[in-house]
């Protein structure tokens, strides 16, 4: 089975990926409290095939719920790099888009897509569960059309992403072994 050129298998796989999204919710800010109502009985995201994943190894979707301090960003990038290939990022709230109300804070980043590829942004401060579900439907559309190739984008533009990350982290850069599988784990 060839995975590089899209064909019938890839079409079926995309359909399965669309209907089975395992979520790793990274609760950084106020958005962490919006996740439980999204999953429980009132909004019930499980009917779209969403399910909580316990570890990054099993997860498909990384939900970043709120502002990111530079210290937190380091953990987010490590988590993102540990996930396996078809992987998506959903960023919630204006904090991840342009800094939001932390626009002049000395330790929160202003643009998340400089550091990791983001598939869908959900605007709002904080977006309600309805908006999160809208974002997930938009993501499902992207997956079905085969446009949610964040992992590929990250691998191809790794120098650019690492340069941006180095600007924020300075000397204390992340270790290489979480993304560079060339030498084996």
């Amino acid at each position: 089975m060839c995975t590089d050129n899209p064909g019938v298998w890839e079409y079926i796989a995309n359909w399965a990926r669309k209907h089975s999204i395992w979520v790793l919710a990274y609760g950084t800010g106020c958005g962490a409290i919006e996740m439980p109502p999204t999953m429980t009985s009132r909004y019930d995201a499980e009917r779209f095939g969403l399910r909580g994943a316990a570890t990054p190894r099993q997860a498909d979707l990384l939900i970043i719920s709120g502002y990111l301090a530079t210290k937190t960003l380091k953990r987010v990038i490590r988590t993102y790099e540990q996930m396996y290939d078809p992987k998506y990022v959903l960023a919630l709230g204006s904090c991840t888009i342009n800094g939001g109300m932390y626009w002049d804070s000395y330790n929160t980043i202003k643009k998340l897509d400089l550091y990791i590829p983001v598939d869908v942004y959900v605007a709002g401060c904080m977006p309600r569960p309805e908006a999160i579900i809208e974002g997930i439907i938009a993501l499902q559309k992207r997956i079905e059309e085969g446009r949610a190739e964040g992992a590929k984008k990250y691998r191809e533009n790794i120098e650019w992403y690492k340069k941006n990350q180095r600007e924020v982290f300075g000397d204390e850069m992340l270790p290489d072994y979480t993304w560079n599988f060339e030498g084996g784990i």
Partner: peptide, 22 residues
């Protein structure tokens, strides 16, 4: 950073990139 003569906006302009339109 919590000293009052620390200029956060100046620091942010130096270290981070703004998104256009803001």
């Amino acid at each position: 950073p919590m000293r009052r003569d620390f200029d956060t906006l100046h620091y942010v302009n130096e270290h981070y990139e703004w998104r256009e339109g803001r």
